[in-house]
Computed example of a mutant assay.
Amino acid sequence: MKDYIVLDLEWNQSAGGKDEAVEHLPFEIIEIGAVKLNEAMEEVGEFKRLIRPRIYPELHEKILEVTHMDEKTLIQEGRNFEEAVKDFLTWCGEEAVFCTWGSMDLTELQRNMAYYGILNPFPKPFLYYDVQKLYSLLYGDGKDRQSLDIAVLEQQVMEDRPFHRALDDAHYTGRILYKMDFMKVREYWSTDYYRLPENKDEEVYLVFPGYSKYISRPFETKQDAIGDKTVTDLICCKCNRMLRKKIRWFSVNQKFYTALGCCPEHGHVKGKIRMRRCDDGRVYVVKTMRLVGEEEIPEIYEKKEETRKKRVEKTRVRKINKKKGDSPLS
């Protein structure tokens, strides 16, 4: 039987701002909270540890405001992170399926583990359930993300316990999982991006109802990434057929690229490439390929035309400025 581990973390950050932050560790975990659910999404256990801050011993004012923690309690009752995370992983067991509200907790857990030299036990790719995303798929448009407190009110699972403490938020997230029709959305896994594919053989291709996702290895530059054939291939998310592009890849802001292809069996497929930065400054790609209806196609053509006009205008301005610079009167 699977155990679903609903995890929530509280963390601190540099009270002196980014200039005084430790490189590659912007957030130091100060509390781990989790509940264990069985396959019926019933709560069968809980875990809580306060962690003594060592990297950022002074609590940031925003953390004090939101969590109402105090430094004295953390120092007196908190454990070392190494001890706390070891206890947590043992409590989780080997068959754990992780669930979080949002996409940051598992990344920050691994980042803190790496800082302390703790062996990362999680698989690659690391799949988990983002309950916030699942909630949007069931009760929203699948894009907008609702805050936990609003979801709790909407589902009428409010209890006499606060928000913004790790165990309490984990408990509320578990209650949302119990209330929702999980079977309708259980195929919509999320992928944690902290540990990326190290080479081409490890690159990830996942298939979901209606769309697919590709996660690349890191590239030195954006140009290297967009020049890779696997990155720019457009594939049908239903039959895995290589598609001829009706609209070639274009970008408005150099972070997102869009293309359109047509599968003779399943119809139009929209490709979207998102460029993301690794901690070491390199670039990796998350590409989604999604079936789209006829009503969405004009919007893609409009965006491409908008991009073309901006490019033409940018070229025109550059030529004017160059002429001004070449003028003997300038």
Rank of each mutant, 00 (worst) to 15 (best):
I247Q: 11
S330H: 15
K310I: 11
P26N: 07
R318D: 15
L59G: 10
R161I: 09
F81Q: 03
R274C: 06
Y56A: 06
N80K: 04
E23A: 11
V85E: 02
F182V: 12
H171W: 13
K238I: 15
E187W: 06
A40W: 04
P121Y: 07
E159R: 15
R241Y: 10
N321D: 10
N80W: 02
M275T: 08
D149W: 02
K18S: 14
G227Q: 07
K48F: 12
D280L: 05
K304G: 06
Y205H: 10
A40I: 08
A34W: 00
Y211K: 15
P53G: 12
K222C: 10
M158P: 05
L9T: 11
G261K: 01
R49L: 04
L177W: 00
R241D: 10
L206M: 14
Y135K: 00
V66W: 00
E94W: 02
V185H: 00
R274A: 14
K18W: 11
K238Q: 13
L148W: 01
G210L: 14
G45D: 09
F208E: 04
R111V: 10
K322G: 04
D326M: 15
F47W: 05
K48N: 11
I320R: 01
K323M: 12
S327T: 07
D19G: 09
V22G: 04
V231C: 03
D70E: 12
Y115H: 15
A21F: 02
I51H: 01
E220C: 07
L119I: 11
H171M: 14
Y135N: 03
K310H: 13
A21H: 03
H171F: 14
M158I: 13
K143W: 04
R290L: 13
K133T: 01
Y194L: 14
I63F: 09
D8V: 09
G102I: 05
F47G: 06
F47Q: 01
E313L: 15
V131G: 00
C236N: 07
K238S: 13
K143N: 08
V152F: 00
K86W: 02
Y194A: 09
R316Q: 12
Y172M: 04
F219N: 00
K245W: 03
D3W: 01
K272D: 09
Y4K: 01
S216W: 00
Y178R: 15
D224N: 14
C236K: 09
